[in-house]
């Protein structure tokens, strides 16, 4: 989890700048923050889509092996994976994604607020 500093906000320089410089610097800061946010969002999305492929596809590839494994007094694993486990993994993935993106949004909001306060 990166800290606010990692966003590379040049807040400490803003005090000595002229108003024009401040405006252009503020714009640069905003751009940098937006770029950081988008990069992070894309990485999280890519990781979560790879994770999604597990319940959606990967879990159902080795059917030959999983169909011969019985769990819980006789439920074949390949059936259990498709009928229950995949969906539960899907639900967990969405909530984890929402939680992580929520934290990312908070970081960006907090840094924006710090930037405004410094201005």
């Amino acid at each position: 989890m990166p800290k606010i500093d990692d966003i590379n906000y040049p807040i400490e320089n803003s005090g000595k700048a002229t108003s024009d410089e401040n405006e252009s610097e503020g714009h640069m800061v905003k751009n940098k923050a937006a770029q950081w946010y988008w990069r992070r969002l894309k990485v999280i999305t890519a990781v979560w889509m790879i994770a999604w492929s597990i319940p959606a596809v990967v879990l159902h590839i080795p059917i030959g092996a999983t169909s011969s494994i019985k769990i819980l007094n006789g439920i074949p694993l390949h059936w259990f994976n498709a009928a229950l486990l995949s969906i539960i993994i899907g639900v967990i993935l969405i909530f984890l994604y929402a939680f992580l993106m929520d934290r990312t949004d908070r970081i960006i909001k907090l840094s924006a607020k710090e930037s405004n306060d410094a201005d």
């Binding site: 999604w52 959606a56 159902h60 390949h78 498709a82 009928a83 969405i94």
Partner: peptide, 24 residues
């Protein structure tokens, strides 16, 4: 039987794509 289970995962896990790539 098992051959009908694409309905179960197909009509649920699409919402993961919606959450990660579309809804917000």
């Amino acid at each position: 039987g098992f051959d009908g289970l694409p309905y179960i995962i197909g009509w649920t896990l699409g919402y993961c794509i919606a959450a990660f790539m579309i809804a917000p």
